[in-house]
Design a protein around this nucleic acid. Sequence first.
DNA 1: TTCGCATCGATTGCATACGAGGGAGAAACT
DNA 2: AGTTTCTCCCTCGTATGCAATCGATGCGAA
Lengths: 247, 247
Amino acid sequence: MGESVRQEKGSSQTLKAVLGVRDLVFSGTIAPGERLSEISVSEHLGISRTPIRAALARLEQEGILEAIPSGGYSVRQFSVADVADAIELRGVLEGTAARLAAERGITPARQAALRHLVQQLDATVAGPVDGMDLDGYMAFNAQFHDMLGDLSGSRIVQRELERVMQLPFSGPSAFLNAQTSVPAFRASLVYGQMQHRAIAHAIEMREGARAEAVTREHARLARINLDFVLKDPALMERVPGLVLVSN
Amino acid sequence: MGESVRQEKGSSQTLKAVLGVRDLVFSGTIAPGERLSEISVSEHLGISRTPIRAALARLEQEGILEAIPSGGYSVRQFSVADVADAIELRGVLEGTAARLAAERGITPARQAALRHLVQQLDATVAGPVDGMDLDGYMAFNAQFHDMLGDLSGSRIVQRELERVMQLPFSGPSAFLNAQTSVPAFRASLVYGQMQHRAIAHAIEMREGARAEAVTREHARLARINLDFVLKDPALMERVPGLVLVSN
DNA sequence: TTCGCATCGATTGCATACGAGGGAGAAACT
DNA sequence: AGTTTCTCCCTCGTATGCAATCGATGCGAA
């Protein structure tokens, strides 16, 4: 063994361990609530216990693991209410980012980038109903939401925003995968895209309250999708982090 | 050496290391931006490198350290704008907690506890001008803000709220210490207490929007205090985490 | 039958040893 | 003299050994 390459989290062992444990959790190999033994994980991934330990601590901060008082970690359990709250929280933070962007103003360069991104989203949504480029939409959508953090002009807000979106089911693209086959889904996308445009417009116009309100409501689209997905167990499996949700 | 006691974070070595490094940073022993060597810290605290390592990783997540790309950590630097943003962010999250509490309603028991706490704050503020029980006020004030997280009824929101308040200068009592000697300070306290009552009333009346707005504005009292403290270098030293603020 | 205690095993937390990579300083070359 | 390169040392990342603790299980007593 031994291709330690440094770069803090850029490579090797600890990163491998983080990714490995994430997969172990999201693949459902380890049930929610189940204890996570350092040794078994170490043997399973073929990595020494030290990086495993670091990875576990990191994943606890990330929110998918929980520290057991007597030592060790277990897979965190989420309720449906928790998922709804996480979505609401993302909306609150994204809304704050949008408001700050509007209140403080953004540079012409960023304004141009924002407009360009909205146009790209427009073009994707305007595509054919069946053969829509969903992957492309998801990528642009993720870019849009990342950009909100940038535009806020606040490291602090951006950091917390990224933190909250680490929870797998609270990301802006979390429920897109599940709905590729649903017809009603398209209406949702079109509505969402109108909100994207409204957000961009509000930021340009320096309308802080509007930017915040629309961005919050935009996040709540995910809550509607959540309710929809919960009715169909087959769809649930397509949403990345939903294995952690219990009742 | 060797009184390892387990209890995860309840005692021993790792906790010692966390507290030790925190003190090292907040006492100004290590300047902002300065690199933090595992070995020197290890020798300075008389603790092995392994718990130091865990503590450093933890303090990075906490926000007072920063990972260096090539490895290791440095003390994070904050600007005045960062502090203002952290305060604003706390206001946003506390406001969300208050809104959720109002929208979802709180149990009669919690309502009684909230009223009781407001009365205690009232009594403290109503005391004599000079001999005011500032420590008591700070304790009740901290309780009030903790209670907002409880009342939200959301683990997710409460968790993030606690995270944001970990930053030393964004806590609700951060600037109280500095102003014990300032006469104008009393007006600020009275105003803040009126806001406390308004928040409690709005939650009881199920007025979500009001609860959120007032709570946000309440947090901005800290921003005013920040500006005030920044004018007087002597006061700055009395605010815990202000050594991390550069320009 | 149930409760309490003691002993044992498994697992975590801590310490230390080792290998590798990066930065600083010196030397040599232009 | 400036620049480049080489080398050495220091620090971090990783692996493993050891000890202490927690939980479980089995036995005994009420």
